[in-house]
Amino acid sequence: MRKIAIAVSLSIFIAFLIATAFLIHPFGYPPSEMDDYIIENTQSETGANNAVTAVVFDYRGFDTLGEATILFTAVTGVVMLFRAKKKREK
C-alpha cells in the first residue's frame, strides 16, 4: 500500500516536471522594464562596465549585506565550535 502511494505520487511529480519543461518560457521572453533600464543606464549612473557587479553592489546592495551577514555568522559558528573542541581535547 505504501509503495503504491509512493509510486503514484512520484509519477505525478515527474509528470508535472516534464510538463513544466515543455511549458517553460523562451530565454528572456516576458520582457521586463527593470532589466532594460539597468542595461541602458548602468554605465552612466554607476560608471561600472560590469553590469552584474553594479547590480550586486549598488542597485541590490541590501542583498549583498545579507549575504555578508550569513558568511559572518557561519564563520563565527565554525570557529567557536572547533576552538572549544581543540581546547577540551588537549
Binding site: 554607476t46 560608471g47 561600472a48 562596465n49 557587479t53 553594479a54 553592489f57 549598488d58 549583498t64 555578508a68 558568511l71 559572518f72 557561519a74 564563520v75 565554525v78 570557529v79
Partner: peptide, 24 residues
C-alpha cells in the same frame, strides 16, 4: 579609474570572504 564606490566594496567583500573561508 571608474565606478565610484564599487571597487572599494569589492576589496572589502573580497577581504571578508578570503579571511572567512581561510579561517574555516
Amino acid at each position: 579609474w571608474t565606478a565610484g564606490v564599487i571597487p572599494f566594496m569589492n576589496i572589502a567583500v573580497g577581504l571578508k570572504v578570503l579571511a572567512g573561508l581561510s579561517a574555516i
